[in-house]
Nucleic acid binder design. Structure first.
Lengths: 220, 220
DNA sequence: CAAAAAATTGCGGGCCACGCAAGTTTTTCG
DNA sequence: CGAAAAACTTGCGTGGCCCGCAATTTTTTG
């Protein structure tokens, strides 16, 4: 008998994950090469060596397969957030967790920038990409709730949702303007945490003492 | 010759708008009655008295037709925002504009709550609803940019995006918890404007002088 | 009123999602 | 171990959707 006894991972389970992963990757690769509309389900299935029908056992659409990469991101995000030290301010924790997650993936490949841009456009159009982000958002909200003691779910969802907004905006900015992702992301999260003083600078709704936003003028 | 000379609205144009509107409404009504999966394109077309092929001249999918109601909201939002007085603080303007728009539509029909919930579930699943929100978001960002002088587009997009986040969260809260929409919305927008002090209250990232957030304790 | 411009419609094709009923692989248990 | 059970894969067939194309009808224009 084999000495390896995987704790809770039956062989079946491993195979399933493997297949799913392979399908998602194939879908992404083919889409980056040819554009989404030139990839048939049959192509993806063939690439992995599996029947088209089987593809639909794992994903109910091409778009879903491509976006599953985005969805899987939630795991890393949750772990990163829960791993932050106890006493740290919430916004700082969230910021670091998000940055950590996105720096782990690295700035996307230079050669694929054009393709990725195209892909993003298509996925934005079809709603599937946004849908995927919504999934990440739910997990993030849960995690935030756990982090702060889980009282006001509404606010947790708001925070998660607006953080995802920042991510999306930064992403779009990256692939339309070519500016690096992480600095933009950091800046946007800081703005969020402060109620966007740079925009509202001259006419802050809750200035109290708006000594923190005099330099915002240069941009707005 | 007819004495009426519509300024820039040719007859053709009116018919098109009418048809589009009729199709969208039919799509929404049927979906609320039966659920999206039980509505075929053919049904919608028949309801309006038009060929199925024509439906696809106006909308490229059922989902798009249903969501066009959401998209049309952007018009009202833009006007409302641009109509706010000059000197008003930006967050206040945005808040009032959004509230105005959503109070104009009125709290949704009691009888349709259950149906609407179901519909939202389906539309959330298909990403089309989120897609529609993204469209509103783009217009909102533009409008905000115009409002503040249009310099930092990135921040404008962030603000628009997070405002839409608040709207979505309030909406979901409405149809899952049954709480009234407008008060929730107002509260969420206030929280956004202040960087969500209620959540981060005890551990604000940019306290400077955190004399503004002592009362947040009650919730968090 | 006639020619031009624009919309509607039917048809045909390609593709996609999924239910169903074999067939195959993995797991379980005596 | 070895057979029954459970889980996954696959082919087939169905219904549906989206869209290009070309013919027809409607509206506009001069």
């Amino acid at each position: 008998m084999p000495p390896e006894e995987p704790p809770t991972l039956t062989l079946r389970e491993r195979k399933k994950r493997e297949a799913r992963r392979a399908l998602a990757q194939a879908a992404l690769r083919l889409t980056l090469d040819r554009g989404l509309e030139n990839v048939r389900v049959e192509d993806i299935a063939t690439e992995v060596g599996v029947s088209p029908r089987t593809f639909n056992n794992y994903f109910s659409s091409k778009e879903q397969a491509v976006c599953s990469v985005v969805i899987d991101r939630h795991e890393g995000m949750r772990e990163a957030l829960l791993a932050r030290p106890e006493g740290e301010p919430l916004w700082e924790s969230v910021k670091q967790a998000v940055l950590e997650q996105y720096s782990r993936e690295g700035e996307p490949d230079r050669a694929y920038v054009a393709r990725t841009r195209e892909l993003m456009g298509q996925l934005m159009l079809r709603g599937e990409f946004l849908n995927a982000h919504a999934a990440v958002e739910r997990v993030l909200a849960e995690t935030i709730a756990k982090r702060v003691g889980g009282v006001d779910h509404l606010l947790c969802r708001l925070m998660a949702s607006s953080v995802e907004s920042a991510v999306r905006v930064a992403f779009v900015n990256w692939f339309t303007e070519g500016e690096p992702l992480l600095p933009t992301l950091e800046r946007l999260l800081d703005e969020l945490a402060a109620g966007m003083p740079t925009l509202t600078g001259g006419t802050a709704p809750k200035p109290e003492s708006n000594a923190t936003t005099p330099l915002g003028e240069s941009l707005c």
